[in-house]
């Protein structure tokens, strides 16, 4: 009832227009909330490989409970799609994040880019950052950042991290052209069959390649890599 009354007096005031000198002074509006600058982060990525483009880079800022992968654990279906096809759409659809960002195109060897993320509000307590991207001239290799704690970063501070290569454990490493979605293969990306030596995420052993004795491999010596495969820099910008 009180609310209704308030509303009608508002209407009255509005109706009176500017000719209101004789009207009682309007009730002072509530003090505006103190201005909050949303917390913001910039994530820069450098592809350190010789010939492994990285699929569009995916970044999530999320709460402390979420972990998108772990060594020795089976990859989620969404991660499998990213690691086999470089397709991050299912992850973007399914992850409940405080902020997310995606690169618009693959990131070539030696190339770098920066992605910006802005939170709703300035509370960074408990926040973690996860980044995922596929090495596209492989069966199911990916790199990234696994739920790193960014809660203590002050504005202007940054942290630099090296990304090692992981194997999603969801596709056998045949390196055959028809199983590699990147330019070295031009083959199939995602296949729901899980036929790797064990259905679990591990560190990657690297590409073997035809040059190094894997018959049927579409890869050559240029597609090999060593760790780290990417360098990441997380900066709190606001």
């Amino acid at each position: 009832m009180k609310q209704l009354l308030f509303l009608s007096s508002m209407l009255l005031l509005t109706a009176c227009g500017s000719n209101n000198n004789d009207n009682p002074a309007p009730v002072a509006p509530p003090a505006p909330p103190p201005e909050v600058t949303n917390a913001g982060f910039e994530v820069s990525i450098v592809n350190l490989t010789a010939a492994q483009p990285l699929s569009p880079v995916t970044v999530f800022i999320h709460n402390v409970e979420l972990q998108l992968f772990a060594i020795g654990e089976s990859a989620s279906a969404e991660l499998e799609v990213l690691a086999e096809a470089g397709d991050n759409s299912q992850l973007l659809d399914s992850v409940d994040a405080s902020a997310e960002a995606s690169g618009s195109a693959p990131l070539g060897p030696g190339a770098s880019e920066s992605l910006s993320l802005e939170l709703d509000g300035d509370d960074t307590s408990g926040l973690r950052l996860t980044l995922l991207t596929m090495l596209v001239n492989t069966n199911d290799a990916f790199t990234g950042i696994n739920a790193v704690d960014i809660s203590a970063l002050e504005v202007g501070q940054s942290m630099t991290l090296n990304g090692r290569s992981y194997d999603a454990g969801t596709e056998a490493n045949t390196e055959a052209a028809d199983s590699i979605p990147g330019p070295a293969g031009g083959g199939e990306g995602f296949n729901a069959v899980r036929d790797d030596i064990a259905d679990q995420v591990t560190g990657h052993g690297g590409a073997v390649t035809l040059d190094d004795g894997l018959s049927g491999s579409a890869l050559n010596h240029t597609h090999r890599w060593d760790n780290p495969v990417a360098q990441f820099r997380i900066t709190r910008t606001q």
């Binding site: 090692r164 290569s165 045949t174 052993g205 073997v208 004795g213 894997l214 018959s215 060593d226 760790n227």
Partner: peptide, 21 residues
Amino acid sequence: LGDDNPTGGNSDIVNSVHRWL
């Protein structure tokens, strides 16, 4: 190093399984 020959070659280690980084 390994090789991809399960019953011969010069190594009993499997190149697409046992290499590490």
